[in-house]
Design a protein around this nucleic acid. Sequence first.
DNA 1: GTCGAACTTGACCGGTCGGTCTAGTTTTCC
DNA 2: GGAAAACTAGACCGACCGGTCAAGTTCGAC
Lengths: 204, 204
Amino acid sequence: MDRRLTQRGKERKRQLMDFAATRFAESGYHPTSVAEIVEGMGVGKGVFYWYFASKEELLLEILREAQLDMRRRQQSEMGDSTDPVDRLESGIRATMYWLAEHRDLMSLFEFAQADEHFGPLLRPGRDNSMSDVMRHVQEAMVAGRVPNGDPFVVSHAIIGVTNHLARVFILGREEPAEDVAQAAIMFCRSGLLGQRGGTGCRLR
Amino acid sequence: MDRRLTQRGKERKRQLMDFAATRFAESGYHPTSVAEIVEGMGVGKGVFYWYFASKEELLLEILREAQLDMRRRQQSEMGDSTDPVDRLESGIRATMYWLAEHRDLMSLFEFAQADEHFGPLLRPGRDNSMSDVMRHVQEAMVAGRVPNGDPFVVSHAIIGVTNHLARVFILGREEPAEDVAQAAIMFCRSGLLGQRGGTGCRLR
DNA sequence: GTCGAACTTGACCGGTCGGTCTAGTTTTCC
DNA sequence: GGAAAACTAGACCGACCGGTCAAGTTCGAC
């Protein structure tokens, strides 16, 4: 679906994607019909198929854009520090903030990841983010900041903590991103460095 | 759907549930039609609706049974030890083994958890498992085996690591449950105790 | 002003879905 | 052996789904 779009066209497409994302997040991808989307926006069905080849393509585009945006945020946030562990923490914090700002997209990720069809299509993007994390873990190990181990496993453990806490505390309980980030960092840090952080956890 | 079932009836129902679980795991819940299930089993549609009120009920029953079975396994495995941290580790190990033995059900959980309709229905069961974990964390904190903190957050962090590593290494890469359990335990332990375990990780 | 591209409408289509129902067969139990 | 209960088959149903299309409108470039 490669169409030359005018400014107006781009705006329409944006509206469609945003609206669909909320509906998908609210009611689920399968249960939300194309008819529902266009009716909800008060436009004809032709509009939908002018901008997207299919319902599936729409979701894919939403997902791709979201992955890209999240990764950009993570990378820009992780850029500054010289210490690899600090960079990791910035990454966790950036992730939490992004997810808190895009709760719809978070639940869309949840769905897509578990889905037999869409899950595999998410892989490339996830692998990219994964290798971002892994690079810093590896660097931290080389620098002796973190005990040696399999960086792949450790990276996945970090991602597991981050994602799960995000799901429970941000998606489920709407806690402030900063607090959740702190909790995740604290657990990961103790896991990584073998020492307990000072202050207690603010969460709850 | 409360029917008196003969032995034969119970077996049929079992077959239906097992077969449906595999199909749901392979192709997804929504894309798998009731017609597909009964055709795949070589029976008529009447059979399906004799045992289940609806497609949704079927999934619910599968899910409920699976949750119960997993929890039983976790509890029986966690029972022995006097040390709360050991119990936690046994729980992680039990979880990994169970998930490795029921990969279909694991991906069904993934789906249901992310689903807008089924997700909430999974809550009660998850809350039960959650409080099992939390009890031991709390006990470990009281006993001074683990630094103080919010047991709710720490428990979720443990669950996050366990589930994510299971998803990646057991569902995705079919690694041995024992190795994955070791990896999860190692990460959680360092996180919990502030000390690095001795041996390196066997995974990969 | 005009012409083609961008955009929009909504009736329509074939197909599939979850679920019903009737008519039948088998099993169980007295 | 006979009646009731358990079980099975599969044609059938209305609803809805994703997607098409012909026709019409608006916009922007020249």
